[in-house]
Amino acid sequence: MGKTAVIVIDMINTYEHADADLLLPSAQETVPAVTRLIDRARTQDIPVIYVNDNFGEWRSHHGEILEEALSGGHADLVEPLAPDERSLFVVKARHSIFYETPLAYLLTQLGVDRVVLSGQVTEQCVLYSALDAHIRRLGVVVPRDAVAHIHRDLADAALRMMERNMAAEITTADRVALSP
C-alpha cells in the first residue's frame, strides 16, 4: 500500500436542495464517522482533501462555501468536520470528484495511490468518484458508515457495485488502514 488520502465529498453543504429532506437523516448519522476519519488522518499526517460542489456559484471559493454552510440551518453537520489550515480543497461542479477538476494532478503531486472516499451521496457522487478513481488505477476504500445516502436501497447497491466491479474495499471508518 502506498500513500493514502482521505477525500471528503460534498459535506460542506447548506442542505437547501431538492433531496435534502431525504438526505438529512443519513447525513446526521454519517457526520460522527466522517469526523473520526478526518481526525485520524490529521493525527497521522494523511492528506485530507475536501472536494465540494460549488452549488452553481462560479464566483465562490472554498472559504465562501464554508461560510455559507456554517451560517445555514445545518451548521451542526458542517462544523465538526470543517477543513482546518492543513486541509486541501477542490471545487467541483458535477458528480465525480475528478470531472474537470485538478484532483488527479493533486493526487499525483502528493504521491497518492489510494483514496478513502467519505461524504455524500453514496449512490451518486461517491459511486461516480469511485469509478473514476478505479479507472485511474487508484486503490479505493469506502467506509460504509462515512457515506450518506438519499435512498438506502440504491446506496446498498452502489456499495456492492464498488466492491465487486471496482475492487473497492468496503469497511467502516474505524477500520480503515490509513498508512502502510
Rank of each mutant, 00 (worst) to 15 (best):
M1T: 12
G2A: 13
G2S: 15
K3R: 15
I7M: 11
V8K: 02
I9K: 00
M11L: 06
H17V: 06
A18K: 14
P25V: 07
S26Q: 04
A27Q: 05
A27R: 09
E29M: 13
A33D: 01
V34L: 03
L37E: 02
D39A: 15
R40K: 14
R40F: 08
A41V: 09
A41G: 04
R42L: 08
R42C: 01
I49P: 02
N54L: 11
N54P: 00
F55P: 00
F55R: 12
G56L: 09
E57T: 08
E57R: 13
W58A: 04
G63M: 10
I65S: 05
L66P: 03
E67M: 11
E67V: 00
A69S: 14
L70Y: 04
L70S: 05
L77S: 02
L77I: 03
L77W: 07
V78L: 09
V78S: 05
V78D: 08
P80I: 09
L81W: 09
P83L: 05
S87Q: 05
V90S: 06
I97P: 00
F98Q: 01
Y99T: 11
L103Q: 06
A104P: 01
A104E: 15
Y105M: 10
L106T: 12
Q109L: 12
L110Y: 04
L110C: 05
G111L: 10
V112I: 15
V115L: 08
V116L: 09
S118H: 08
G119V: 06
T122P: 06
E123W: 09
L127F: 14
D132E: 15
D132W: 08
R136G: 02
R137W: 10
V140H: 04
V140R: 01
V140E: 07
V141T: 15
R144Y: 03
D145E: 10
I150W: 02
H151G: 00
H151M: 04
R152T: 12
D156I: 12
A158G: 06
A168C: 09
E169H: 04
E169Q: 14
I170Q: 08
T172R: 13
V176C: 07
V176M: 04
